[in-house]
């Protein structure tokens, strides 16, 4: 039996859902499969929580060989990994982590673009992770329609701040997840966009007791990658096992995220929160008011000679085949 050392890195702490499941699911699963033939055995060194890299540094850490396997939080890297924004630019389709994770992962494997982006960062793509079910709007005041968002300050982060463009006078205020409670409490913002699990972790019900179930959509944010030089030296048997288990990890984590989401919504209501289903017409109005981020995204890729438009169409089709019809057909507005 040959022993292979693997340094796993993430900047998030060991208690984060996807990190914990890497320890409790990914690693034992790989060990189990390798034990079946007995040719190889892994010697894992798990370095999480900033001991080698910060959350934003995983991509570079894997690139530079400070870790062998890493969980890259892709939303930090709009510039180096533009295609990873695929689900963020297509809101109002699927509030289901499993469907989004599978669709993005298939896009990554059917089109070379995503893998090429990682390859130019000297790493090999294994699988996509989705750790939240869907963004919702949490509010201090009762809320049911987009007119309730007009002229209000809404906390958000990254791409979702752009969902507010098109709503009259709505101003996006950037904030870290840990700040949302205070921002709402002091009235610095009137609303916040986050997912139910985060809302229950940070006791948002105390300060924003109304949740508008807008189902903005699940977003892919994690990718498991392997340093390219390390990968090239791995025996094929180990490569195969890593690839197989990565896909199972993808579904495992997405499934857990969905279970947690349900529990979190229940907890939110128990804690005194009210969930208001957003009217279909209102959702359509919001989607219609937004700029078509997906077309912007596709055009950007097309201009670089990548199949942006094709990826967008294929992604929409995959979700439709999985039973989710888009509130607004983003790809219908493509010019090519």
């Amino acid at each position: 039996t040959e022993t292979i050392k693997a340094v796993v890195i993430d900047g998030y702490p060991a208690r984060a859902l996807w990190v914990k499941e890497f320890t409790n699911f990914f690693i034992p699963e790989v060990d189990k499969r390798l034990a079946e033939t007995g040719n190889y055995e892994m010697d894992w060194q798990e370095s999480y929580g900033g001991s080698i890299v910060k959350p934003k540094g995983v991509l570079e850490g894997i690139k530079l060989g400070l870790g062998d396997i890493g969980i890259v939080t892709t939303i930090f890297h709009s510039s180096k990994l533009p295609t990873q924004a695929i689900s963020a630019v297509t809101p109002f389709i699927a509030p289901d982590s499993r469907a989004v994770a599978k669709a993005v992962d298939e896009i990554a494997k059917e089109y070379p673009t995503m893998q090429k982006e990682f390859e130019s960062q000297n790493q090999v793509y294994l699988a996509t992770g989705v750790v939240l079910d869907t963004y919702q709007v949490f509010s201090k005041e009762p809320i049911s329609s987009i007119s309730d968002l007009e002229g209000k300050k809404v906390a958000g982060a990254g791409m979702n701040l752009r969902y507010l463009e098109g709503i009259d006078g709505a101003a996006g205020v950037r904030g870290g997840l840990t700040d949302f409670y205070n921002m709402l409490q002091t009235g610095l913002v009137d609303k916040a966009m986050l997912w139910p699990e985060a809302a229950s972790t940070f006791k948002i019900a105390e300060v924003a007791p109304y949740m508008l179930k807008a189902d903005l959509g699940a977003v892919n944010s994690k990718t498991i990658t392997v340093n390219k030089d390390y990968w090239d030296k791995l025996p094929d048997e180990v490569k195969d096992v890593l690839q197989e288990v990565a896909v199972e990890y993808r579904d495992h984590v997405a499934g857990l995220a969905m279970d947690r989401a349900q529990a979190s919504r229940d907890k939110y209501v128990e804690a005194g929160g009210t969930i208001v289903e957003m009217d279909a017409a209102e959702r359509e109005a919001w989607a219609a008011a937004m700029p078509n981020l997906a077309v912007e995204w596709a055009a950007q890729l097309d201009s670089k000679g990548e199949p942006g438009s094709d990826m967008l169409k294929a992604y929409m089709t995959k979700l439709q085949d999985a039973g989710y019809s888009p509130t607004r057909d983003w790809s219908a507005e493509l010019s090519q």
Partner: peptide, 16 residues
């Protein structure tokens, strides 16, 4: 060479 930037496109970006 890659004109790499940080920040979120459409919100605010700055070159590295």
């Amino acid at each position: 060479e890659t004109k790499d930037f940080f920040g979120v496109p459409g919100i605010f970006t700055a070159p590295w």
